[in-house]
Every structure is written in C-alpha cells, then in structure tokens.
Amino acid sequence: MSEVKSVAVVGCNIGRSHIAEGYAPRPERWRLAAVCDLNQERLDKVADEFSFESRTTSFDELLVRDDIDVIDLCTPPATHFELVTKALAAGKHVVCEKPLVGSLRDVDLMQEAEAGSGRILMPVFQYRYGDGAQKAKRIIDAGIAGKPYLGTVETHWKRTATYYEVPWRGKWETELGGVLMTHAIHIHDMLTYLMGPVSKLFARAVTRVNAIEVEDCVAASLEMASGALVASSATLGSQNEISRLRLCFENVTFESAGAAYSPGDDPWTILPANDAVAARIDALLADYQPVGRRFLGQMDAFHEALNGRGPVPVTVADARQALELATAFYHSAQTGADIALPIGPEHPKYASWRPNGH
C-alpha cells in the first residue's frame, strides 16, 4: 500500500482551505491529482495556485481514474448524497464537508453504502483539531475531569445579505438549514465529542437577521445522557464573531479561547479543582504531542487511518449524531415540544427535518 495518497478536490470555495491547510503542506502524504469545479475561472485560479496535475469541470471524469485514491467533496450540501454515493461505488475513499446529507434516512443509507464499498467515508469536523480541544479530550477520557455538570456553547457570527447572494445559500432546498446546520453544527459536534450524547432538548429558532428562508437565531436547552445540562445559542447577527465552549465538570472547568473559526486551538483555560487534580493533568499531558490545527489535523489523522495506523478520525456515526441533534432542534422549534433522542426511522422527521414543502 502506497504511503502517498492521491486526492481530487471537488469544489473550490471551502475546497481551497482543504488544499491550503490540509493537503499542500504535506506533499510527502498527499499528491494533488486533480481539482474540479463548475466555475472555470475559480477552477483555474485554484489549480494554478497549487499546481494541480489536472483540472476538470466533470465530476464523472474523476470516478474512472485509477490514479485517484480520495475524492474530497466541498460542494453545496444538497449535492452530497448523490456525489458521495457515486464516489464510494467507484471505489474511492471520500471526504465530505458538512452537513453530510439532508436527513437521518440519508445518513443511514450512507453508512450502508460505506460498509458495502470497502472504502472510508470521512465527514469533515475540523474544529475538533487544535491543542486546546485535544488536551481537554484526553483529560476527560482519562477520567480526571469526573462527572459533567453543565455547559454553555455559543456560535455568534455575522453574516450579511452579501453572504446570501450565493444562490444556494439561505434556502431549505439547497442549504438544508440555516445557522444551526451550516454554522453551529461545528460547536455542537465539539460538545458531544467532549461531553457525550444528548438525551433531550427544547429549542426555539427564528429568522431575524437576514431576509432568508432558514433560521439565523437559535436558543436551546439540552439534557445530556450523563444528566448534565447545556445551554446553546447561535446567531448570525453578532457584531463580533466567537465560537465558545465552557464546560463544567466535577474536577475541571474547561473554556475555549473563543476564536470563531478555530475554537479547538490553544490556549484553552483548564481550571483544576485542586492541586491533586492539577498534578494528574500535568502528568497526563507530559508527553502530549501537538496536533495540526483544523484541516491539517484532521487530514493528518485521516492519512494515518488510510495507511492502517489509526482509527478514522471522524466517522459517519459522528455525522449521524450531529444530524440527529439538528433534527431534534428543528422538530422542537417547529412543534414547541421537548424532543427525546436517539431518533430512529419511526420519528416524523427521520426522512427530513425541513418544513413541509421543502
């Protein structure tokens, strides 16, 4: 098995960040085999910048190439299901931006497609990657933090009408949701990554900032499976942009630094309950090795998995948990009810969380 994996990136908006942060800095791990975009000007700009071996406007052209190991999908959300299905069927490993698909039904079909393909489908949750979040994860997993008590998570960003000039944004049919789906999904993934699954939630969601179909302000109360309580809020009308977690455990309180697009980065505030806990943390982290941040960290871990040296860093099951939480948010906001998780095929929103008619 070759150590170097060849990758084709599809979609040159966020795809450029995947290349610049995750692939281009590691030429000993990744070969930039092809780049694809429907917009020729955007395609040529990225292909020239990173010296891709080939460029194309045809996704299907990539599927028949034997020299491509990985297809990285950075296309609008509503296209993911079809493109992921085709890529897996063609024998490619797949990286896919969030949200993975538009319903729990579709994500369950994705799990079946992945299992049948013998390939890996890795959803993107790059905000997990940063030394602050990774140190917190190690402390929690080691049992040092103790019982989780309470958390607050905030995604307070700013998006103006200019952002929604892109035709697929702000619409149920093509973006699949608003601030909850395309922005706060990251912080909610980090919450469950560190504090475990959600068992119940109540949410309100409204549109107050921009003239769009989907929500841009959300507030919710969550009960975790552990019994801990969490308050979550998200808006696209904040005059300063922050992504922040504050998680209170029995023996440690964690607080992220608040960087909007890299909340996993150091420095996190890690407050131990006493000197004995502090000593345990110091001992645990004595051999800590820094990870790459954002896409670099996730793609480094993905490369290890492809070469059989580690687990897949983000799985389809992780994406399902994030989409299950989003489904519960939308169902609660649409019905005014407290929603219990997990959510299975019998749930009225299993096939789609979008309002009727979408």
Rank of each mutant, 00 (worst) to 15 (best):
R16C: 07
W168Y: 15
E61P: 03
T152R: 11
L236F: 06
R105L: 09
A340S: 14
A34S: 14
K147Y: 10
I187E: 08
E97W: 10
M299Q: 11
G297A: 13
G11Y: 02
G118Y: 03
I71L: 06
Y350L: 02
G344W: 04
G91N: 06
A257Y: 05
G357H: 04
K158Y: 13
S2C: 07
S58E: 13
F295C: 09
V214P: 00
G132K: 05
D131P: 09
E154Y: 10
A203V: 12
D37R: 02
Y261D: 13
G132A: 04
R119D: 03
E255N: 02
E324I: 03
D282I: 01
G357V: 04
H188G: 07
P123A: 03
R294F: 06
I187S: 01
V166G: 06
P311W: 00
V252I: 14
K45I: 05
D44E: 13
G143Y: 05
L194E: 09
Q111H: 09
H80A: 07
K92G: 05
T327L: 01
L325G: 09
R244Q: 14
M1N: 11
A259G: 08
G11T: 08
L341R: 07
P148K: 03
C36Q: 11
R138H: 04
L83T: 05
T152W: 04
T79M: 13
F125Y: 15
R204S: 14
T207W: 00
H331F: 14
A203Y: 08
F125H: 11
C217Q: 12
Y288V: 12
V218K: 05
G258P: 03
V153I: 15
V7T: 09
T155A: 13
A33E: 14
M122K: 06
A301K: 08
P167I: 02
A351Y: 01
G151M: 08
Q334Y: 09
G344A: 11
S332C: 07
A90V: 05
A322G: 03
L285T: 07
L271C: 11
A319K: 02
Q40I: 12
M1T: 13
L285N: 05
V94K: 08
N307D: 07
A351Q: 11
M122W: 07
V316E: 00
I281P: 00
H18A: 10
V9M: 03
S17D: 14
W30M: 02
T182W: 04
A142P: 12
H80W: 02
L62D: 06
L176Q: 02
D60W: 01
A47F: 07
I212M: 06
T182N: 15
L100W: 06
C36Y: 04
I14C: 01
I185T: 11
G11A: 03
V124Y: 04
